[in-house]
Structure formats: C-alpha cells, structure tokens
Design a protein around this nucleic acid. Structure first.
Lengths: 146, 146
DNA sequence: ATTAACTTGACAATATGTTGTCAATATTAA
DNA sequence: TTAATATTGACAACATATTGTCAAGTTAAT
C-alpha cells in the first residue's frame, strides 16, 4: 500500500468513527434532553470563553453558518442560550450560555471526562498525539482549498 | 494535558474533518451527479468484491441499515445499482453494481487517487498508519459498547 | 465620501443520518 | 419439530448537514 492508499483507508475510517461518535454523544446527552450537535455548540462557547456570533461558532466547529444558526435558534428557544447585543455589529448578536446552558454543559463534562479516559486507555499518548496532529493538518489542508 | 484531554481534542477534530471530507467528496462527485454518500456505497460494493445485502453494506459503512436502504433505493432508481435474487434470503436481495455504477466508480477513482496522494504528501507513512490504527481501534471500541 | 466587496441573518430546498415500529424471514435453542 | 430470538425490508418521524439566495450591515478600496 502506498501513502495515498493508506490515506484513503484513513478517510473511510474517519467517516465511520465520526458517525459512531455522534451516536455515542446522542446517547450520552439524551438523559439531559440534548444531542451531540447541541453539545458541540455549548462546548464551542465554553471553550472560547466568551459569547460569540453564530458565524464565529460555525467557523470554530468547521461547519456551515446556516447549520449552526438553526442549532442556536432552537437552543435559544429551549433556554440553553441567549442572544446579547453586539456593540460591533447591529444584526449579528452574540450568543451566550444561560445558567441552564452552563449547568447542562457542566453535567455533560462530568460524564465525558471518564468516558474519554476510558477510551484513551488502550492508546498511548504518542498515538493520540500523532492522530490528532494528522487530522489537524488535514483539516487545515481541506480548509485552504474549500 | 492528560490522555483523556488529548482524546477529547481528537474527537472534536474527527467531527470537523469528517464534515470537511464530506463537503469535499460532494464537490468531487457533483460533476457525475453523485454525492459523498452514494460514492461510499459504490465503494463498499466494489471493495467487498461481490454483491451484498443492504444490511451488509450498512455494517461495512458503520451506519444504520435504514440510511443505507434509502441510498440503495435511490441509486437503484438512478440505474447505478441493481437488485439480484439472494439464494440465502427470500426478501433480502443482493445489491450489485450496474455497468453505469461500475463506470461511475471507476471515474471517481481516477479523481480520488491523485487527490489522496496530494493530501498525503505532507504526512509521513508512519503518521498515516498511526492515525489509521488509532481510529480503527476506536471504531472497534465504540462498536462493542454501542 | 462613495462605491465595491465581504459578512451576516433569515429562509428555503434538499440530502443524509438517527431512532422507532411492524411484519416477513432466518436462525438458534429447547 | 417447535418456540424463542434475531435479522431484514419498509415506512415514518425527526435531527442535522449542505447549498443557494436575498437583504441588511460592515469593511475595504478608491
């Protein structure tokens, strides 16, 4: 197998694992009435440590502005997020976590940490770092070319 | 960062790259009137080197039987796939590539090979193999627990 | 300052995925 | 053999993603 063929195998595995992780996230979040997709939005705002515009969140998540917009809208309706005025843009409000949103994210973090540690158990630090590095480089390459 | 945290970063990167690859695949296949999802179905049957039931294809792709069923149905309608009798099961027909399906897959392969080689260029063989190995192990772990 | 180019929210169309359910078929166990 | 269990196709409900489009707002260029 040449490098291109290994790369192709990797791509197929990425698709498979991504679907499995989404299903896993859906189950992990279901008791809180959430989903993988909404969890990721909560995480984006938490990790960026400040209210963000929908477009910012979309860029951070690496997906379309429109997909993120719909998630944000429904999460505002559900009381997980709130829109606050943005001094830098009249229409593009900032998306912020409500108390309920922060609480939900904290509760999911409690579940996610032992979950991650358990799944990381069979892998070495070097393996995990290399895998992350490869995917990170790939993401940047795909970003440039669109 | 402990191993669990690296693992979590990897998970987020998998989500991002998966979306980017799907978008890339949609663009690559659009000139042929196809999509990433349909390409993967063609690939599954090609790589398994024999007609398969819809359930077999779903398992190979790591996604639900129902999602695969819909893809297969629409691809049959479009003449890319055909259903043939399955001597081992009265209802579960075998899904086979038509001439048009084989032709489309061959044409996509011609595009995909240089695409894969180009993206693999910035990565060493060892990096690619490790990344594949990590995701493969992860997929198996996620499969057990479901 | 005015214009051109870009960004953003809003809305729609469409594709793809999950889960749930039911009846038909196969497989396994007793 | 018969009964319990599992798999499969078919259909539906729903969540999530892409792309496309338009008008409002911002930024950059002249």
């Amino acid at each position: 197998m040449n490098k291109g063929q290994i790369f192709t195998s990797l791509v197929l595995e990425i698709f498979k694992v991504s679907g499995q992780l989404n299903a896993e996230g859906d189950q992990l979040t279901a008791p809180l009435g959430l989903t993988s997709a909404r969890w990721k939005v909560l995480g984006a705002i938490s990790l960026l440590q400040a209210p963000q515009t929908t477009s910012d969140i979309a860029r951070y998540m690496g997906q379309s502005r429109q997909a993120t917009q719909r998630l944000v809208d429904s999460m505002v309706a559900d009381g997980l997020l709130e829109l606050v005025e943005n001094p830098r843009h009249k229409r593009a409000k900032l998306v912020n976590l409500t108390a309920a949103g922060k609480d939900a994210y904290a509760r999911l973090d409690e579940k996610q940490i032992p979950w991650a540690q358990e799944h990381a158990r069979g892998l070495t630090r070097e393996e995990l770092e290399t895998a992350f590095s490869v995917l990170s480089k790939l993401s940047q390459q795909l970003n440039r070319q669109g």
